[in-house]
Design a protein around this nucleic acid. Structure first.
Lengths: 217, 217
DNA sequence: ACCCTCTTGAAACGTTTGTTCTGCGACAAG
DNA sequence: CTTGTCGCAGAACAAACGTTTCAAGAGGGT
């Protein structure tokens, strides 16, 4: 059981449709939803393929239950509908963020992801995440291994924690943002550290930090 | 529309049942699921009450669709099936945690809650959360306002971040736990701070910290 | 008493939806 | 050629499920 072989296009299509239907509607599709969504001529074909997908561990089916399809992940666990945020790179002392291009790579399994609470994803739209390598952000109470959730769309207001790109130093930091005339003050969370003053033209705001997550073990 | 009045017991019961059914099965219940689950004698009674619940903004119904019930939150937004963790109290310098009784209060709306990623809830079973008041945990890189997710069931192993109750001081701290003979060493995350050494009998481990969440704005 | 709204009860109806049966064509192995 | 498996097609069946209708009790106000 649960032999995850390579999928024929038809079954890949069905699986993909179930995923998107679940995302759009919050409930699993019926056999006939799948039939229409995948341009299949008969419900028996859908049933046939679902049967195989179940045998191979891609999903569970509750017999005689409407919309009884339940997707499984690689570990055979029920898949959650929690939004996943891509970890687009690591942020480290003085190092630029690799692969920052938010567009282009529409591939899904390319990056690591973190699950965030649906509430977050609802409040802000598109989010991305950065993992923090090293203790360079320790003054912002952010440790090695922490994950920072960033809202790229937002305009920064005074007092916001932002991901700031310093052009002259070619480095990224997490600081509180204050615009003072045409100067920018970047204030570490730790008030004992001194702030960075720099011309506004030297600063590129890459986003607003909305959450920091630290996992143990 | 969406007049959220006080609910009669029957409708409260139905709403509660839908919530728990959704948590247990991942899909919404049918009319007859509700009928059986709430010991109601007729489907028309269920429909009658669902109709009112929809009018008052507690849920949406997709007409003629099996399991077409969608719960709404106070803001009229679709409610997520993300697990919610109760914030059972605040943890502050030297202050005991109020209302630590994990049992007893089975009421749902009694506490504030935080949504956590389903993955967390799957890995550990029951979780609770503490909000941190004040900067007493700053040495553990935990700020004022941070929320700490705790697994109460776990046995603490050396190196785990734990919620420790110090009987003699009558206070709670977050430290890394090391059992050394019959002594316990509680090590602050900040290595510049000195650890606490105390007899094992003086320490009560209230749980293992599995995640720290910091929200901005 | 009457009228009114809210709520429950029983049953039936019709759609939605999962299931099953039979047959067909493609293709590879023996 | 025969056999077997895989995938598709069409149709019909049966269970699940939302919906509707009609009736009646419970309480409150006039």
């Amino acid at each position: 059981m649960a032999e995850r072989k390579k999928l024929p296009p038809r079954r890949r299509q069905i699986l993909e449709f179930i995923r998107s239907f679940l995302g759009d509607n919050g409930i699993p599709p019926t056999i006939r939803d799948i039939q229409n969504g995948c341009n299949i001529s008969s419900t028996s074909v859908v049933d046939y393929n679902l049967r195989i997908l179940e045998r191979d561990g891609y999903l569970n089916r509750r017999p005689d239950v409407a919309r009884g399809i339940e997707l499984l992940d690689d570990a055979g666990q029920p898949v959650s509908n929690a939004p996943k945020v891509q970890i687009v790179g690591a942020i480290a002392a003085g190092l630029p963020i690799p692969a920052f291009s938010t567009e282009g790579a529409a591939s899904s399994a390319e990056f690591d992801t973190v699950e965030v609470s649906p509430e977050l994803a609802r409040r802000y739209g598109k989010l991305y995440a950065l993992s923090v390598a090293g203790t360079s952000m320790i003054d912002a109470l952010i440790d090695d291994g922490d994950v920072v959730i960033v809202n790229p769309a937002a305009e920064a207001s005074n007092g916001d924690m932002v991901v700031a790109w310093l052009k002259d130093r070619e480095e990224v930091t997490l600081k509180r943002f204050y615009l003072e005339g045409d100067q920018v003050r970047l204030q570490p969370a730790n008030s004992q550290m001194s702030p960075i003053y720099t011309p506004a033209s030297n600063v590129e705001i890459h986003g607003k930090v909305v959450e920091v997550i630290r996992r143990f073990s």
